[in-house]
Each structure stands twice: as C-alpha cells, then as structure tokens.
Design a protein around this nucleic acid. Structure first.
Lengths: 339, 339
DNA sequence: GAGTGTTTTGCAATCGTATGCAAGGGGCAG
DNA sequence: CTGCCCCTTGCATACGATTGCAAAACACTC
C-alpha cells in the first residue's frame, strides 16, 4: 500500500500512537519495544520514510556536503570523487556537486548557492577560495576542507600530498638516472600544488648540484603542456628528462614526444609525471610518476570534515600525505633502484 | 554585518515590513518598488539568503536532481557528469550524486535515500532499475530519466545514442575496409547499449554477407576485454578486425595487441571503439570510434527531465541520438571514405 | 469627495519533523 | 500497600519559508 507519500502523522494514526512516538522511533531515541514494533509495522505498510528536508530544517543538519570541482578532465578527480562519495555515503552523508566555471569570479555565487542548501560542510577540489568567501563560511560556521590544494593565510583545513617532498623525490630519481639536462613543465603556478612540486624539484636538483635547464608553466592543461614540449625540444640543447607537474599533462608530453617529434622515451628523453592516475599504468603510456595516495587523501578529508562538523571549535588542520615514486617505462631507471 | 544566519523574519524587522513581504520579494511575487528596495537593503546588510531547505519543505520542490552513477572509470561519465551539472546548474537545479555499488541489490536502498531528500527527479547513468523501484518512483510521482541505457517494459524515459544504427555503421565500415575475419568484444550483455550495439553490428555484417568470426562479452571492463583479446588472437584464425563495445575496453584491447602481443594496428588488426571519449583522440591511442554526442545527449536528458517535472502527466519519452563514425588511425580506412 | 477597481500588505495557517516539558505507567524496595 | 524513581508517551511548540485571504492603501473616474 505505497501511496503518494506518507508522513509521520499518517504512521502515527495507523499505529495508534502519537506523532512524536514515530519521530522517536526513526531518530533512534528511546521507546518501548512494543511501540517500536507497532510503528515499524505501520511505517512498512505505508512505505513511510522520514522526510530528510523537514528533518534538516528542524535540526539544522542536512547531512549534505557540498563539493566544488573545477574540472573532471583530469582523471585524478573522478577517481577521488568516486571514493569520496562512497566514503561519505557510508557515514550517512551525501554530496551535492557543483562544477566551478573557469572564471573564478563566479565561484562566490556558487558558494552562496551551496550555503542556501544548509550544507553541513564544503569540500573543494583544486579550487581556490577568495578570502571574502572564507570569511562567510567561517561566520556561518560551515567547515571547509580543501582537497588537493592548500591556501595560506586562510584558516582552512586542507589535505594534499607532500608536494615539496614529492618534487624532491623526482629530482633525486632523475639525477640518479644520470640525466644532465633536466627540464620542468610545471603545474599552474597559481596553485599550491604546482608551486610546491616545482619548489621541491628545484631544491632537489640544487642539492645534487644539477642545474634546472628550463621551467615552463603548463597550466595543468594538455595544450599548454604540448606547446611547452615543442618549445623545450626546439632548443639547441633539448632536455634529456622532463618532470611534468601532473599525469594529465604528462600524457600530452608523451604524445608530442613520441608521435609528433619522433623521440624515443625513455631512450632520448625520460618523462616523469605526478598523480599516478589509472591511465598511467596502461601500456600505451606506462608512465613513471609520483603517486598521490588517493584513498588515504580521501580518508583524511572525510575525517577532517566530520571532525569539524562534530566539533566546530576544532582548529583547522593541514594534512600532507606522502606517496611513493612508481617506476615504470617512461624514465630511465637508475642502477640499483628497484621498485 | 554578516552574523550567524539571518532569517526572513530578521530581515523583515530590520526593513520594517512583514515577514511575508520578505518572502514575496525573494520569490519574485509582486511587491512595490519601495518595499523591494527596503527589503533588499536590509537583506544585504544582514547577508540574508533564503533557506533552500525550508523553501523545499513548504513548496515540495527541492530543485535537486538525484544522479545515480555506477562507475566513473570510463571517461564517458565524468565528461557527461560535467556537462549535466553545468546544464542543470544553469536552470537552477543541483545534483545530489550517488555512486551505485556493483552489487545491484543495494540500489534499492540508494534510491530510497534519494527519495528521502525529496528530489525533483532522478537521472540514472548506466544503471538499471528494478521494476519494484520503478513503481515506487511512479507512485511518488518522481520522474526518472535513464541516461545511456534504456529498459524495456518500464515506462521510463531514456536517452541513448542510436546504438543499433551505430553498430551497423561500424560493420559497414569494417566490411568496406576489406576485413575478412571480424570479431566483436561486446559491451555487457546485461545492458541495452551492449546488446543493441552487438545487434546492429551483426545485422550490418549479415547484410553484407560477412560472417561474424566470434563474439565475447567484455562486460565493459578492462580486464575482461584484455582477456577476450588474448583469447581471440590465440585462435588458429585470429581476427583481422575487432569492434569493441566501448572505448574504455578498446584501450585495453589496443594495449594488449600492441604491447603484449606485438601486433601492428591497423596493419595486422583494425580496432574500432564506441563513445569517442577525449582519450580516443590522443596520439597514443588514436582510436577510430563511433561518437556518442554527449552534449546532445545531455541536452536531451535535461529537456526530458525538466519537461516531466513541469508536467508530470507527460508520457515517458525515449530519445535516440545518432553519431558519426570518427575515423582515426586504429583501423584501415576504406578507399574513397573520407572524414 | 465618493465610488470602484487594482495592488500591496499583513495575518495566520501550513509543510513534516524534532524536542522540552509534564503527565502517565511500571518496577522495586521497604 | 505505599513511596520513589525512572522510563515512556503525548502535547504543544518551533524550525524558516510560502500562500490564501481579507483588510488597507492607492489610483482613477465621475
């Protein structure tokens, strides 16, 4: 007898109890066995389920997390999104997803919309927030966790991989491989990840006494990375190794090197990426890359988020998770290094 | 003066009007210029925005669309999701996203959760629904649109590409290319897309009088497709052309053919996929494939969805959109065929 | 200035649930 | 049996908005 939609009052009447009894049964408050049984029976008969909207309105907790994503083109994000959604779903939360247009101006409007829905928290994936926005969220007591991006100055929690350390590892790896002319096609310098990876990379090279041949901002975009590759290889002293700011760009670099310019990888040039998206393991690319441990990053994000929801007073928390270098076939492997 | 959170009543008091006046200003009902100005000013000062939850509860319209997705591993879905989200956002709707676990049993529970949120509609992406579920949605008057999958018998709207026609086009293309031993690694036979593409392909071959060498269900999974490829190539009469049920599997097929078994593509074997995900155009794969016009499919999905929300009496609508064959480098191009 | 018609506005009820409060009921010790 | 305490239960209210209704304000015409 599943009619249009039953309310707690309908159930109450059918069960012969008060509406509050029904509410108590479904919100886990205390009730006698007898009442619980009667209510459950009636609810089943009517197909009743509590109205999440009404519940949210009354309690002020929507159990919805707003997710801001800039682009899904880079496979890292779909993968993260999938895990994030599963994890939150398991904890009884759900994701209201918002794509952020490239023009960073509109983001304020988007966040406003988010807040209209009384979201319990906001997770941003590779999105920066204006300080104005940060303040609003703080004022409303809405926790924010930045995933795969950090932002100094703001009091926001963030979860990233250990980007400086990661950049450094790549530098050590390339130096150990005996490369002489090392270049970097960097992640967007407007992002903390791009800057940190580049910084770590430069530090690592400096420590080894190897100069950085060139650095070009690839903007995390295929086209920019491809163009940067052409520029680099057109030099009189083209690089014999390129560290690329993320896998997504590295694929473009490999495409240009192999299929457009006819270079051998890693024979002529070694290429190293960053992320270790699934595609990096596919034979066509077989990309050596520094892995971002998505699962652990997601777990940390969820923990931080729920922690702050439970205790709004908890201070912001910046988590860095380090990942291993995954050696595959796109870069010469130094003697003695093993997986 | 952005305090915790202002309600319409706060605004009303500050503006010196009634709470209903505030409501009317923000819901676009008629009001005098003077009132509008006063309310707007007060609202700005308080940082007031209407509470979407409360609005949803009262009006019964949440302006939220539930989206059920099975997996994001196949790039077709992130791309579609991005467009879908943008499109709906532009129309004032938002997406509550749910990942459906592989065990199809749980899907009922997921849909229940969806309905708890009073979603205005449900879009499923490559997910099948039990008839039980279908009934519940119908009973609740919640429109459902299936994206990239159709289901007979249910009265549900669906938007797909013209899969039978598409399969046929591929058959004609391969036959025209002079291939003799043509095999098919099919999409999951439990899905309408997989079945229809295979059906069209067989029909096309039959019309041309060319036999189908073999057909294996690739389950839309990389590993299955890879294994199927090994099986096919181990035959005494290995195929000289393989039509693969979607790009995602086709990449695995190419990886195995080229890097594991050492075949030349398209020299030894031609490979054709289905979808035309961005990756298909990248040089490393350069995959000939039948394009599913995502943009148009998404548009149709949104139109159908909103149409049914506006007028619940509107009958279900099955849309099929045909796409072109995109000729790239993974399959021999018949003489005289041009892009 | 009175009469008529059209807006504008406020009052109050309502959506479906949660919860403080006080009354009711049951169990147990004395 | 009485008294005390604790667990259940129902009543009534609140959450923040929308909306029907009727009174009030306004605009015009005669």
């Amino acid at each position: 007898m599943v009619t249009a939609k039953a309310t707690s009052l309908d159930v109450a009447r059918l069960a012969g109890v008060s509406q509050s009894a029904v509410s108590r049964v479904f919100s886990g408050a205390s009730a006698s066995e007898k009442t619980i049984a009667k209510v459950r029976a009636a609810a089943d008969r009517l197909g009743y389920r509590p109205n999440a909207m009404a519940r949210a309105m009354k309690s002020g907790e929507s159990r919805i997390i707003g997710l801001l994503v800039a682009y899904l083109e880079n496979h890292f994000y779909p993968v993260a999104l999938e895990k994030l959604s599963n994890e939150l779903q398991a904890r009884g939360y759900h994701i209201l997803i918002f794509m952020v247009p490239n023009n960073a101006e509109d983001i304020d409007g988007i966040v406003e919309e988010l807040m209209d829905y009384q979201v319990d928290g906001i997770i941003t994936a590779s999105v920066s927030m204006s300080s104005n926005l940060t303040d609003r969220c703080a004022a409303s007591g809405i926790p924010v966790v930045m995933f795969n991006r950090a932002q100094d100055g703001t009091g926001l929690s963030s979860v990233t991989s250990a980007n400086v350390e990661g950049g450094r590892k790549v530098a050590e790896f390339l130096v150990a491989g005996g490369h002489q002319r090392i270049a970097h096609i960097a992640g967007w310098e407007g992002s903390s990840t791009g800057r940190d990876r580049a910084l770590g990379f430069r530090l690592g090279l400096a420590d080894a006494g190897v100069p950085l041949l060139a650095e070009i901002d690839g903007m995390y975009a295929r086209e920019h990375a491809a163009e940067a590759t052409r520029t680099l290889m057109a030099r009189p002293d083209p690089p014999d190794a390129i560290f690329v700011g993320n896998d997504h760009m590295a694929f473009a670099v490999l495409d240009v090197l192999r299929h457009e310019l006819g270079y051998k990888v890693p024979g002529d040039v070694s290429v190293v990426g960053y992320d270790d998206v699934p595609l990096a393991a596919w034979a066509a690319y077989d990309l050596t890359t520094l892995r971002q441990p998505v699962k652990r990053m997601v777990d940390a994000t969820v923990e931080t988020m729920l922690g702050q929801i439970e205790d709004p007073a908890r201070p912001a928390q910046k988590t860095e998770i380090s990942g291993p270098l995954i050696m595959r076939g796109s870069a010469r492997i130094p003697k003695g290094w093993t997986q």
